[in-house]
């Protein structure tokens, strides 16, 4: 049986056949809403990226959502301190699946100039799985746009069959660190 037989003639020029993955990812990639979460200096360049000069709305991201429960992208825009780390992890846990993390700026990548500090987490990837890294101190709005396009590429390469958030056995919740006397400690009851 060929395609000619199955598709009625009146639909021949109106139907578009594509894999589910392709169409599903296209929709997801074109409407990634970031959580409105400015950590430090880079937050300012993030706000500027939303303004009319750089216009993030072109990529379906006109909304910075104030609640993590309505968003799927966390732009970690600045230094994550140890005092802030539990809140960052909790925010991530509160975001619905699928969720992505973008480490913006040198501080979020590795601690940047503040790496030596006693209260600085040397890179947000010590706490969360990061999808895209954007170097710069702070990165220009153009590089943030480029990172977002890279994230779109990643999203469009995913497939439903292997994506972890559809599997029942996968536990993607990250344990929230606690304050200890010398730094961050593992949560109690999770000392395995």
């Amino acid at each position: 049986m060929t395609q000619e037989d199955t598709v009625p003639p009146e639909l021949k020029r109106n139907v578009f056949i594509a894999p589910v993955d392709w169409i599903y990812n296209l929709g997801r990639a074109a409407s990634v809403w970031p959580v409105m979460f400015g950590v430090a200096c880079c937050a300012f360049e993030m706000i500027v990226t939303v303004t009319s000069r750089f216009d993030l709305a072109r990529f379906g991201m006109e909304f910075l959502r104030a609640s993590p429960r309505q968003s799927e992208l966390m732009i970690v825009s600045g230094t994550v301190t140890k005092k802030m780390a539990p809140q960052v992890v909790r925010l991530y846990d509160q975001m619905p699946e699928p969720k992505y993390v973008l480490a913006m700026g040198a501080c979020a990548i590795s601690g940047g100039p503040f790496k030596d500090g006693y209260n600085v987490v040397p890179g947000v990837d010590k706490l969360l799985p990061v999808n895209v890294y954007v170097p710069g101190c702070p990165p220009r709005p153009e590089s943030l746009l480029d990172a977002i396009l890279k994230l779109h590429k990643q999203i469009r390469a995913e497939t439903i069959r292997t994506s972890p958030w559809y599997r029942k056995d996968a536990d993607r919740e990250i344990p929230v660190p606690e304050y200890g006397p010398r730094g961050l400690v593992l949560p109690k009851g999770d000392k395995s």
Partner: peptide
């Protein structure tokens, strides 16, 4: 204190010129 980045401690490790940035 959620953005306490230890400027004062790092400032003591840097030399005088390095502190401007």
């Amino acid at each position: 204190g959620y953005l306490h980045r230890n400027h004062e401690k790092i400032g003591e490790k840097n030399n005088w010129i390095q502190n401007t940035p």
